[in-house]
């Protein structure tokens, strides 16, 4: 409860939470408000927002309802963000925990692998993965997860390096505890807070990565994602700029919300850091 109180004491964190709740509400209500296929032809193409009461955010250059695509797109963007972040955290935590706990040669090998991922610009790697494995929703999500884990691995490793020498670890060893339990049941819960905070950053980047892919028409074209809509608006950017701008604002709000929540979590988990 103390944690909740500290979190709610910070206005930016509360704003982030409200924005995130708004995006979640959009995703949840998409089917109710827009029961039709958001990618189906809805009306005359390129109607300006508020010009036609049926399409209050207008239509894109293929005559699809932008509002429907934004609402349904919230689902896809959040889905991709959550799943790929979870994947990145799981890979990162396991690699970092094992490397930090055992040290020595295990650490060397795992960290060189991590560095191999880190030195490649992650968007380039993402392009390669999507080019090789195709661009369905599943492959795009997994590919984003695969390019995002190295930072969380390094973070977990750093925590483990300092925690593994604590006396409580030695005490558990003395009780006869095995390595797997030591790593995951004893040390990991203590190492997790900074990683959880960093998950917010990974999530924001994941949304941006997917949008960038879609903008290049390399994401799954059969789902109504925000990036796809921006990509569609590219050809009419100078005259009908709203086609790209509306999903752009949606991305901005979501990334902002996730970052604010992440920062709020950080401040609430490390109360001493805030009082500078």
């Amino acid at each position: 409860m103390d944690f909740l109180r500290r979190y709610l004491a910070s206005p930016p964190a509360v704003i982030g939470l409200v924005l995130l709740a708004l995006v979640l509400a959009m995703a949840a209500s998409a089917d109710l408000l827009f029961p039709r296929d958001p990618l189906g032809l809805a009306g005359r193409p390129l109607q300006w927002p508020l010009a036609n009461p049926r399409f209050w955010l207008g239509t894109d250059n293929m005559g699809r309802d932008i509002a429907a695509q934004v609402f349904h797109g919230a689902r896809i963007s959040l889905l991709i963000a959550l799943v790929s972040t979870a994947l990145a955290i799981v890979i990162g935590v396991v690699v970092g925990a094992v490397a930090g706990f055992y040290g020595g040669i295990v650490d060397d090998v795992l960290m060189r692998v991590t560095e191999a991922f880190q030195i490649l610009p992650n968007f380039l790697l993402l392009l390669v993965l999507v080019a090789v494995f195709g661009s369905t929703l599943t492959t795009v999500t997994i590919a984003i997860g695969i390019v995002s884990w190295p930072a969380s691995a390094r973070l977990t490793r750093a925590e483990f390096l300092s925690l593994r020498n604590r006396d409580f670890v030695a005490a558990c060893r003395g009780l006869g505890m095995g390595d797997a339990r030591l790593i995951f049941a004893e040390i990991l819960p203590n190492a997790l807070p900074p990683v959880i905070v960093y998950a917010g950053v990974i999530m924001a980047v994941a949304i941006l990565l997917e949008s960038a892919l879609a903008f290049l028409s390399l994401s799954d074209p059969n789902v109504p994602s925000w990036g796809n809509l921006i990509g569609a608006g590219r050809s009419v950017l100078r005259t009908q700029w709203y086609v790209s701008a509306i999903p752009g604002v949606a991305i901005l709000v979501t990334v902002l919300a996730v970052s604010l929540v992440g920062q709020g979590l950080n401040d609430a988990l490390n109360p001493r850091l805030r009082r500078r």
Partner: peptide
């Protein structure tokens, strides 16, 4: 190993918080 047990110096560091 269970027949020998240890108590550590630092009562703050030796208990998992």
């Amino acid at each position: 190993a269970r027949r020998i047990q240890m108590v550590f110096q630092d009562p703050f560091g030796s208990l998992n918080p």
